[in-house]
Structure formats: C-alpha cells, structure tokens
Design a binder for these strands. Structure first.
Ligand SMILES: [Mn+2]
Ligand SMILES: [Mn+2]
Ligand SMILES: [Mn+2]
Ligand SMILES: [Mn+2]
Lengths: 218, 218
DNA sequence: ATCTATTTTTAGATTTGTCTAAATTTAATT
DNA sequence: AATTAAATTTAGACAAATCTAAAAATAGAT
C-alpha cells in the first residue's frame, strides 16, 4: 500500500463510501484537492487491488477489505493525535498535520504499543471515536448543540469542524471538550444561543452551535 | 526535501562524506542497495540544491548545509530509537527498521518534544551518539574490545555491527551495554578472548570482539 | 606510454502519481 | 426525444526515482 492509496481510502471512507454508498469522482477530487482525472486513475488501481468497487461514471465505494484498511489508517491517525496531546503537550489544533504523516508509518507493533501507552483511548482530541484493532467503531449518542432544546443540558464531547481557526476560537472562549453546557435561550432572529457553561453565562452564534457535538444528559 | 534525498545525505554522511572527503558513486550505490547510475542522477540533484559538492567521476562530499541536514536526520533516527526502547518496550534489534520511517516525519516541534520526553539522551540503544539540535556531535573515548590490552578493564558502550542477528546473539549471551568487561587472556591461535563480565568468565570470538565498543576504565 | 579493467556517466525506458485538454457519458431541461 | 450542461473518462504529457545497456573516463599494470 502506498501513501497515496491510503489517503484515497481514508477520504472515500470519510465521504461515506464505507456503507456501500457510491462516492463521485468529483467529490473525492474536491476533498483531496486534486483533479478528477487523477481520481479516475486511482479508482482503477484500487479496484484492481480489490479495495474499492468502481463502475465507470458511477463512482466508487469501499469493499470490505477497503473499509478495514481505511479504518486501520484512521485508527492510527487518531491514536497519534491522542499521543501528541497527552504525551507531548501538543494543542488540539496542532496535531492533525503531524498525524497525517504519522498515520502512514508501517508497524503494527508500534501502533499497538502507542495504544497501550495511552491506556486504550476511545476518542481522539477532537472527540472523534478511535476504531478498535479489529475495526469496530464505537459511535456515541451525540447531537449538535444547535439541535438541543431550550433548558436541556449536556456535555461538550466533540467538534464537527476541526479546522485550526475554529479550534483556536474555542480555546480563546474557554470552550473545551468535557464542559457542561445548558441551553438557556434561543434567539429567533439569528439563531444564536444563550448558554450556561461551567457556571458562566455566554452567547454563542449559530455557526458555532452547528459545529459542536453535545452528549445530552439523562 | 524528499525522503530519497534525505536517505542519500544520511548515507553519504555515514560513509565519511561529512569531512569533505569524496565518496564514490559505487560506495553509495552499494550501501543503499541501488545502482550507480541512480546515484549519479541524485548527485546532480543534490549538487544543484547545494547539499553536496559533486565533481564528475570524482564522487560527492557534503557541503556545510548537507552535513547539517544529514545530522538532523540522524538525530531524529536515534531519538526515535531511544523512544521505542524506553517508552514502548521495543528491543534494540527491532527499532532500526521503524526509525528508518520515523526519521522522515517533518515536525521540528515533534522531535524536540520527544527529546524532552526522553530527558535529552546522549546515546541511542546501540551506543551511537545523538547529535544535538545544533548539530554538535559528542564523540566518546571508546575502543574496540579487540584492541584492549590484557588485564585492562572497561564498560561495554556500543556495537559496531548493529544487525539484527548480532544483536540477538548478544542478548542470548547476556552481553549488554553497561556491562563491565575485564580482559583475562588472548588466544594467539584464533584471537579469541577470555573475559570476565559481571562476575562470570566467558570466551568471546575475535569477530565479536571487533564489533563491541568499550570505554576503558581509568 | 599504452593497454586494460574498473568505475562512472549517459541515453533511453519504466513506474507512480499527477496534470491539461479533448472526448465521452450521464443527467437535466426543454 | 432532442438539446444542453455537468460530470467523468481518455489520451498524452510531465516530474521523481529508478533501472538496463552502452559509452566514456579513470586508474592500475605492463
Ligand atoms: Mn485529524
Ligand atoms: Mn494522510
Ligand atoms: Mn538505527
Ligand atoms: Mn531512512
């Protein structure tokens, strides 16, 4: 497996190609910042290797082997991110770029030992679940902050947008995973929210609220 | 810098090209298990980039920038090896292959933090010195076990051959870095040595003795 | 100094991954 | 059903890194 092949599989998975849904050439090209013709070439190669099902003009979806491979790369990516934060004091906005490189290191023992060193974490620094060694995914019962009803309460468990600017914005406003959030009020005009977080009251724009995952308290 | 360029610089350094000594195309090709014609191509490319001095038919040597770059890769390689042994319980015969990959990860912060996590080690698991961030090399006063006089005594500090079979052989015979060794006798016939190590007496072949570095006790 | 064996370079080909531009297919619209 | 717009594929090119085979240069030996 080349690095490029691995990156294609990962992208196809993230676009939903793991559920035997067909992903278009254009969608992959856009996500990977490459050209559709390059995607076509790679689709053929991955198809020859039995990693994707590819029908000309119809897009690609991952085979079982393709899904398994994609998950193993995603597992490595997220474990490395946890390592960087927990063991090397990286901030959550610094880890993705480095993990993009580390995810391609080929050593099963290495990633198993990292997993062990970290005490088998279930989520990465952005709240994304870490697949198990045998490719199981532990989805969490979570919803977007923007979808929570007034007076409900929950814990912030993840970010949908994990871009550097958004993560830095959250840091600046002391919004962190683990914080307890209560919805006090919604403003009809701009869909902004008034919330209570860790005791303090604050206002949050709709854009922010649609990019924060919350686990609702029972 | 591509991964291939980095590997060439490292190899040229290991062959002595850091002391403005010219290294032959063939020597590099042999070391890297590639063809001389490929080395010529790369020599031109590295020369264009100012990393080596290259004279046709005369071989290459590293420029100052080339030395600095090579040392930074060697630094990364050796720090990762220490990390694997100290933090992930790899054995010293398992680390090289993985470090060959990890040394190419591009993140200054990452390697500085690994260095810090390891408490700024001076030597790697095979006793090779780790260059400092600014490219300083702390050579040690050491000699080969085979060159030690009878009745002298020292501490085993490194291996010259760090191949997997040799390292496994050392493990099997309980020879480890840090052990104290006293030369009891030399056999003229086959140059083998009778030594005392950690209290016990044993016999060591010439081939082993020429691949172990010892720091002589004062 | 000339010959010869060895080393080194060149020329041309190959693989991987990418691109542009043109051709084709599909999907949407009349 | 024919036309058009959009998506997708093909064809041909390119850069990086490698190889083989042939040519050129160097160094060693007579
Ligand atoms: Mn990431
Ligand atoms: Mn990647
Ligand atoms: Mn090594
Ligand atoms: Mn390497």
């Amino acid at each position: 497996m080349t690095r490029s092949e691995e990156n294609y599989l990962k992208t196809i998975f993230h676009l939903g190609g793991g559920d035997s849904k067909s992903i278009s050439t254009n969608a992959i090209a856009e996500q990977m910042e490459t050209k559709p013709s390059s995607v076509t070439d790679m689709a053929k190669k991955l198809s020859d290797k039995g990693l994707v099902d590819y029908v000309r003009y119809q897009g690609v979806s991952l085979t079982d082997v393709g899904v398994k491979t994609a998950l193993s790369i995603i597992r490595k990516h997220r474990l490395w991110e946890v390592f960087l934060v927990k063991k090397l004091d990286f901030t959550w906005d610094e880890v993705h770029e480095v993990a993009e490189q580390l995810e391609h290191i080929k050593s099963e023992k290495l990633i198993d030992k990292i997993d062990e060193l970290l005490d088998f974490p279930k989520y990465d620094p952005h709240g994304d679940p870490i697949p198990t060694k045998d490719g199981k995914f532990q989805e969490r019962d979570e919803k977007l902050l923007s979808e929570m009803p007034i007076n409900s309460q929950g814990v912030c468990v993840g970010v949908k947008d994990s871009s550097v600017p958004f993560l830095k914005f959250l840091d600046k406003n002391n919004i962190a995973l683990g914080n307890t959030i209560k919805i006090l009020d919604k403003e009809d005009f701009d869909n902004s929210l008034r919330i209570q977080m860790n005791g303090k009251e604050m206002r949050i724009s709709h854009q922010i609220a649609t990019n924060l995952y919350v686990k609702k308290n029972p």
